[in-house]
Structure formats: C-alpha cells, structure tokens
Computed example of a mutant assay.
Amino acid sequence: MLFHVKMTVNLPLDMDPTKAAKLKADEKQLAQRLQQEGTWRHLWRIAGHYANYSVFDVVSVEELHDTLLQLPLFPYMDIEIEGLCRHPSSIHSDDR
C-alpha cells in the first residue's frame, strides 16, 4: 500500500542544540535505511519549511504507523497521511 505522508517538524526553540543534532542525525540514518529497504520510497523537502512530503510503501496502515513511531523526530512532528492508489490515466506501467 502506498501512502503520501506530510511531516512537519516542530522542535522546541529551547531544545539543547546537541540533543537536536543527535535527533537529526539518528533520523537521517533511519530514513536512509528505510529508503534503501524500499519502505520509504520517496522523500522531498518542502521549500522554506522544516517539513517533507514522502511516499511510503507498506503492507498495512498498522505497518505505516509502527514505522512512523520509530522516527526519532516523531514526538516533534505534525503528520498528515493520505492513502494512494493507481490512477487509470497514468502513463507509467508501475508505481515506482
């Protein structure tokens, strides 16, 4: 199942910079691993915002939920999720 996910990060302004840097580094490492595994299929930064648009490829809504909960920045995120399905007018033979 494909899901379009918008993640907006809201780190507290008074967060210790060392803690913030560690969270960001851990987030990057996990995001890259999930991309390599094919779970996090696409990742785009939203210009001018500390936010991204992503496409996740998971078996179920529960798997998406569990994946998002693993993200180190999850406690500081506002997340919007939309399910995706193939459009009949698409010229592509697959969803990649």
Rank of each mutant, 00 (worst) to 15 (best):
M1G: 09
M1I: 07
L2H: 08
F3E: 02
H4D: 07
V5Q: 00
K6Q: 11
K6G: 03
T8Q: 10
T8A: 07
V9D: 13
L11I: 07
L11G: 06
L13E: 12
D14T: 12
D14Y: 12
T18N: 10
T18M: 07
K19L: 13
K19V: 09
K22C: 04
K22W: 00
L23R: 01
K24W: 10
A25M: 09
K28W: 09
K28L: 08
A31Q: 06
A31R: 03
Q32Y: 08
R33E: 05
R33T: 02
Q36S: 11
G38H: 02
R41Y: 04
H42N: 02
H42I: 02
L43H: 14
L43N: 06
W44D: 03
R45Q: 15
A47I: 14
A47C: 08
G48I: 14
H49W: 15
A51M: 12
Y53F: 05
V55Y: 06
V55S: 03
D57V: 05
V58H: 01
V58L: 04
S60F: 10
D66H: 13
D66S: 12
T67C: 08
L68I: 04
L69N: 05
Q70H: 08
Q70P: 00
L71N: 03
L71K: 10
P72A: 06
P75N: 09
Y76S: 05
Y76T: 03
Y76Q: 02
Y76C: 04
D78W: 09
D78Q: 12
E80P: 01
E82F: 10
E82L: 09
L84E: 01
C85P: 00
R86N: 00
P88G: 08
S89T: 10
H92R: 10
D94L: 11
R96I: 13
